[in-house]
Simulated assay, not measured.
Amino acid sequence: MNISRAINFICIVVGGLIAFYANAEQEKNTYLLIGGIVLLVFGVYRTSRNIPSKFDKEEESFIKTEKEDEV
């Protein structure tokens, strides 16, 4: 596991734990909850940047174009 994936995983886990902890208390700490959610979203965003899009591939067509001869 390379360092970038480890950082992403740590951000997601720590952000989720912080958000869960802040929401579980009797007196909810809004700033701690927001910080946990921001850290969680940051980790998910960094992870999703490395996933290739299915639309990036160049599709092969069954129809081949022919070059027109110049006269």
Rank of each mutant, 00 (worst) to 15 (best):
L40E: 08
N29L: 11
I3S: 00
C11Q: 00
Y31Q: 12
V13Y: 08
I63G: 00
V13H: 11
S61C: 11
G43M: 00
K67P: 07
F20M: 11
D56Y: 01
G36T: 11
P52I: 11
N50H: 14
V71G: 07
N23L: 01
A24S: 07
T47A: 05
E27P: 05
V38N: 01
E68I: 03
I63H: 08
L40R: 01
T47P: 05
D69R: 10
S4D: 14
T65E: 14
K64T: 12
S53Q: 09
S48W: 14
E68K: 08
S48T: 10
V38F: 03
T65A: 06
G35W: 11
K54R: 12
I7F: 02
F42R: 04
P52T: 15
V44H: 03
L39I: 09
E59V: 13
Q26V: 15
V14R: 06
N29W: 09
F9S: 14
F9Q: 15
K67L: 14
I10H: 04
I37T: 07
K64E: 08
V44M: 11
A19C: 08
V44E: 04
A24W: 04
S53D: 09
E27V: 13
F62G: 02
V14M: 09
R49F: 15
E27I: 03
R49H: 14
Y31E: 15
D56P: 00
V44K: 02
A24E: 04
R46T: 01
G36D: 15
A22C: 04
F62T: 06
G15S: 13
T47Y: 13
F62Y: 03
I7C: 02
E60R: 15
C11W: 00
S4Y: 09
F62R: 05
L39D: 00
V44C: 06
E66H: 12
A6R: 13
N8K: 00
A19Q: 07
F20L: 09
I63Q: 09
V41K: 04
F55A: 14
M1P: 04
G43Y: 01
V71S: 06
G15K: 11
N23W: 13
N2T: 06
N2K: 06
F62I: 01
V38P: 00
P52L: 08
I7P: 00
E58D: 10
I3W: 04
L17W: 11
V38M: 02
I12F: 01
L32V: 02
D56K: 00
L33H: 10
D56C: 00
L39G: 05
A6P: 01
E70L: 08
G15Y: 12
A19T: 07
E27W: 05
E58S: 10
S4C: 03
G35T: 07
T30W: 03
E70G: 05
S61W: 15
K64W: 10
N8Q: 00
F62D: 07
T47C: 11
F20V: 01
F20S: 09
A22Q: 07
V13D: 14
L32K: 01
M1D: 13
I63C: 05
E25G: 12
R49Q: 13
F62H: 04
E70S: 11
D69G: 05
E58T: 10
N23H: 01
I3Y: 05
I18K: 02
G15P: 09
G16T: 12
K64H: 08
I3A: 02
A24H: 07
S53T: 11
I51K: 07
